[in-house]
Amino acid sequence: MEQLDVSASVLSKHVTVLMDAGYIEQRKAVRDTRQRVWLKLTREGHEACRTHLDALRAIVGSWRDE
């Protein structure tokens, strides 16, 4: 939440969408009386991220060539 500067509810909604798409896995545990959540990209998530970054690089590359 802090790194993204979003509220817990906004982050939760995005995490749910990414989990439903199969892009991330979530693990929860209680530590020091506080709930902790760990997120991990799945293989499909890594591939989707790589594909998205490649598309962005292509857009930026074509823009620089103009």
Rank of each mutant, 00 (worst) to 15 (best):
R43N: 11
A21N: 10
A29P: 04
L39D: 02
I24G: 01
R34F: 12
A21T: 07
L39H: 09
Q35M: 15
K13F: 08
W38F: 03
M19I: 07
Q26H: 06
K40Y: 11
L41E: 02
R31H: 13
Q35G: 14
T42C: 02
L41P: 08
L18F: 07
K13V: 01
D20A: 07
D20C: 03
A29Y: 09
T33R: 12
G22N: 02
R36W: 14
V17Y: 13
V37G: 03
L11S: 04
V30P: 03
R34Q: 05
K40V: 08
H14Q: 10
L11W: 07
L18V: 04
K13I: 02
A21S: 10
R43W: 07
D20W: 07
R43A: 10
G22D: 01
K13H: 13
V17E: 08
K40N: 11
R34L: 04
Q26L: 03
I24V: 09
M19K: 15
Q26F: 06
S12R: 14
Y23D: 05
K13T: 05
K13N: 10
E25L: 12
V37Y: 07
E25N: 14
H14V: 02
W38E: 00
R31V: 14
D32A: 13
V15E: 06
E25P: 10
G22A: 01
K28V: 01
M19V: 08
Q35L: 15
T42N: 02
A29R: 11
D32P: 05
S12Q: 14
S12V: 05
A29V: 10
V30G: 03
R34Y: 09
D20H: 10
W38G: 00
R27C: 02
S12H: 13
A29N: 08
L11Y: 06
R27F: 02
L18N: 01
D32Q: 10
L11A: 06
I24M: 00
T33M: 07
R36Y: 12
V17C: 07
R36M: 15
R31S: 15
I24A: 01
R36D: 11
L41R: 05
Y23T: 13
H14T: 04
H14W: 12
A21D: 11
T42V: 05
Y23E: 05
A29M: 12
E25V: 09
K13W: 11
Q26W: 04
K13D: 08
T33H: 13
K40E: 08
W38N: 01
Q35W: 09
V30C: 09
D20M: 06
V30S: 10
D20L: 06
K40P: 09
Q26V: 04
R43I: 10
K40L: 10
G22Y: 00
L11C: 03
R27K: 11
K28H: 07
W38M: 00
L41K: 07
A21M: 11
K40D: 09
V37L: 05
S12A: 14
K40R: 14
T42Q: 02
T42Y: 02
T33N: 12
S12C: 11
L18K: 02
L41G: 04
A21W: 06
E25Y: 12
R27A: 01
R31E: 11
Q35Y: 09
K40T: 13
T33W: 13
Y23M: 12
R34S: 05
T16I: 09
S12Y: 11
R27Q: 04
L11V: 00
V30R: 09
R36V: 15
